[in-house]
Design a binder for these strands. Structure first.
Lengths: 338, 338
DNA sequence: GTGAAAGCGCTAACAG
DNA sequence: CTGTTAGCGCTTTCAC
């Protein structure tokens, strides 16, 4: 199959290729007859416009780079699902890159996007990223940039996040209101903004309800079911008094639930548990686990729409960057209902 | 920030832009001194090669189109995770498209990839796709094409799948060997090859072990926890005798487990349950659910590697297409251990 | 309403 | 080892 260009169509019809180009782009100054004829021969010859050529000439690729830590984490794949859906409807395609939580790989991604001349970049930073990472250059080059969930510090660009502080507060408040008093919080050791916010919400809720803050109840580590199990084992082994556990995400909560059950503790009567993220399994397990919903798909759709709005308006960096904060919702399930 | 091209670097150094181009591409016939100088000024000026221009000229984009049904399904996002990982290591970037299980949207994806002049396409077909869908044209245009998991019928191209027949057989055989005799199989109503294969495995296992095939034990519908629950309710309501349930995927199995527990049936003593897919929650719930692992990330990596191997060899369609079939592994957990 | 011509930024063949 | 030259396939301005 020979490669067909607008020149081939032009020859076929004895017109110039510029007329063909205009017809294909539905230019107003082309007669309907010509357009008809051009489209018909284009179809007949199996013509497929060359986006590479038009991108080079026009300076627009209609491609958005999406840079996420890793796609095997439900949260990120759901958001990308949302982003792709909206971008697709608006004629944009997604160039995908995973940082694998590594700053080096993240910078390679930025470089690739820049070289690919994407029309914009949507990202969520890696766990290793500090300051503005390599993202500053994108803004310097005046290329539209927006973040979701994990936003770098010190870079004033549009973003969509959930109110993690509020999520942490709501979860803790709910436990307090359910009569729990010695509430453990499992967080993690890195200095990640969203996780710090959840911790802050926890602390403020305790304060507001006049409960003491006990350092022994605040645990930092890496999140996983195994870490959750280990935390419970340590708490029990050290004879630390507690009656509820709020974890920074659901996998850890799952481990917590398993170990509590193994230790013969009844959930929720003896110990209440609340997670974070609304992973699919939280509503399927027994007891069902209370958690905070992060509106993942919605987050993707919001960031995409925000981005498109700004893209259309042109002057991307001329305005105060819009920062959308979605309200998390607390899903009260069996693990904390007493 | 002005846009820097090789011409700017050339002017700066008083050499021609073709020398710059060669230096940048590490051409052997360029002195180390020149290369050094070129790279240094390139960095200093903030030069970023324009992939669009080089793609147009060279005819290679170093972009692979990946077309999947939807990214909010763990299976697909895991495979894409694997594909991106390997492609990335080999200098390729992923252009992502979701068919949303719609044939129309799938064809738009193919069109976009063709217009974007991707160097190849990796796909998993939508539930609506029949025959070779719109994929025939890709092969006709001699563009490398490969499938994973959901492969179209009547298109002889490379693929990576798991042995679904074997998975269905193993699951059923395991139940039989554990002493279960009246084994329900929940499948789905569409004519999808991989699902049919799982059913075939189920049937053959029964046959091989001399068990009767009872049509009332074979249920077809759409998969979801809710559908699983409904199936159990119907089985019980209709007084159908059964002592095990093998579902075509894990979410349905989860619903089955919930409803059996609600009905006071003990798992695994009264009823055994086996799912399919090894979703994260199957190892976290109680009882843990036996399932068939589909090696998702590995599948992505395999298809990417297979693809790269063929891409390098050139003559993509000159050889008999390689079809890799991965061996599924049965994970025996509490739900079927008696 | 259509044509002519320039050029986007690069690769690569041909010269020297 | 480096320079010259000709495009890749399209968009877009200026003509008529």
């Amino acid at each position: 199959m020979k490669k067909i260009t607008i020149l081939d169509i032009a020859k076929e019809l004895n017109i110039t290729f510029s007329t063909v180009a205009r017809a294909l782009n539905d230019h107003p100054a082309i007669s309907t007859t010509t357009k008809q004829a051009v489209r018909e021969t284009a179809d007949r010859l199996g013509y497929r416009a060359n986006k590479v050529a038009s991108s080079l000439r026009s300076g627009k690729t209609k491609i958005i780079g999406v840079l996420v830590p890793r796609l095997d984490v439900t949260f990120f794949s759901s958001v990308v699902h949302g982003i792709e859906g909206v971008m697709n409807e608006n004629g944009y395609t997604i160039l995908l890159y995973q940082s694998q939580e590594s700053i080096k790989q993240e910078n390679r991604g930025i470089d690739t996007f820049l070289r690919s001349r994407v029309d914009g970049i949507i990202a969520s930073i890696s766990l290793e990223t500090e300051g503005d990472g390599g993202y500053g250059e994108i803004k310097d080059r005046n290329i539209p940039l927006a973040f979701f969930d994990r936003v770098p510090q010190g870079l004033d660009v549009p973003s969509v996040t959930i109110d993690d502080y509020r999520g942490g507060f709501m979860a803790t408040e709910h436990l307090i209101q359910s009569g729990y008093r010695r509430i453990v919080h499992i967080n993690q050791y890195r200095n990640i903004n969203i996780f710090n916010e959840r911790l802050r919400g926890y602390l403020d809720a305790l304060k507001q309800y006049g409960l003491p803050i006990d350092e022994r109840l605040i645990i930092k580590g890496d999140f996983s079911p195994e870490f959750g199990r280990q935390c419970v084992r340590n708490l029990l082994a050290n004879g630390i008094d507690f009656d509820a556990i709020f974890t920074l995400e659901d996998f850890t909560a799952m481990g917590v639930v398993q170990e509590l059950k193994a230790a013969g503790k009844d959930i929720p009567t003896e110990v209440g548990v609340v997670g974070f993220a609304n992973e699919a399994f939280t509503s399927l397990v027994s007891p069902t686990v209370s958690t905070v919903d992060q509106c993942t798909v919605q987050m993707g759709e919001e960031i995409a729409r925000l981005f498109l709005r700004l893209l259309e308006r042109g002057d991307y960096y001329k305005h105060k960057p819009e920062k959308i904060v979605l309200a998390p919702s607390l899903l009260i399930r069996e693990s904390s209902s007493r």
